[in-house]
Design a protein around this nucleic acid. Structure first.
Lengths: 116, 116
DNA sequence: GGCTTGTGCAACTTCTGGGTTGCATAATTC
DNA sequence: GAATTATGCAACCCAGAAGTTGCACAAGCC
């Protein structure tokens, strides 16, 4: 095995995280994430109260977040309580880190090349 | 002023970062970002070679990245060379950090409440 | 000057995402 | 058991995103 993973492998891993960023890329959804992050687990009804959209819209958004692995629900009586999955959030963060790091390296190589 | 910024201010700041995540939320675009991150500044022609789509499609995507503040171009002769803007990448990362942190706090409060 | 290469602009198609309304149904509460 | 509350499901609308093709044009190369 190579100490530096080959680009294709990394590229594939990165591309797979696109849905994750897409899930975070909607204002309404980001607001839901922020509320879940700030207030803890909440039911759909309570989440809908604050949002400026219909309950069904909220439900759809939650579904998207769930598909991206960012949140999940637990049925409690007649209500379904949603909460965040921190792990995926950190995954996303790590991806951004990776790009930033590579970017530094690339600029370094570029500078070396120019100065040569 | 309050030591802990009020939620509305934070919420607004977070919501403003939605376009940023949206820009990263497309596989083709994420691939462009990865390539720019890994190989350094590249012209549209070179970027189009690797991508599985038309040059015009690539141009559009680059435009989106630029609008999100994630990249910018510099004209060099007849070609326009694109490169990443690391600052915005870190902004995005910081937002994710913030949510994660709040989430920890929220879970802590919840635990305290239950154990009480 | 003539050919090739690298971009920009514009019109057009297609498909998906965000949102809604309407109706059905399971849990609670009184 | 009747009224209320919390959700799920399905059909539908509409705007915008992703991609394409076609044409014009500037910059380099011979």
């Amino acid at each position: 095995m190579s100490p530096r993973r080959s680009s294709p492998a990394r590229a594939a891993a990165l591309e797979r995280s696109a849905p994750l960023f897409a899930a975070l890329g909607d204002p309404t959804r980001l607001r839901l994430v922020a509320r879940l992050g700030g207030e803890g687990p909440l039911s759909i009804a309570r989440l809908s109260a604050g949002a400026g959209v219909t309950r069904q819209a909220v439900t759809k958004h939650l579904r998207v977040l769930a598909d991206a692995g960012l949140a999940h629900a637990a049925r409690r009586g007649r209500e379904s309580v949603w909460q965040l999955d921190r792990k995926r959030l950190e995954d996303a963060r790590r991806h951004l880190d990776l790009i930033s790091q590579q970017w530094d390296l690339a600029l370094g190589r570029l500078r070396d090349f120019v100065e040569e």
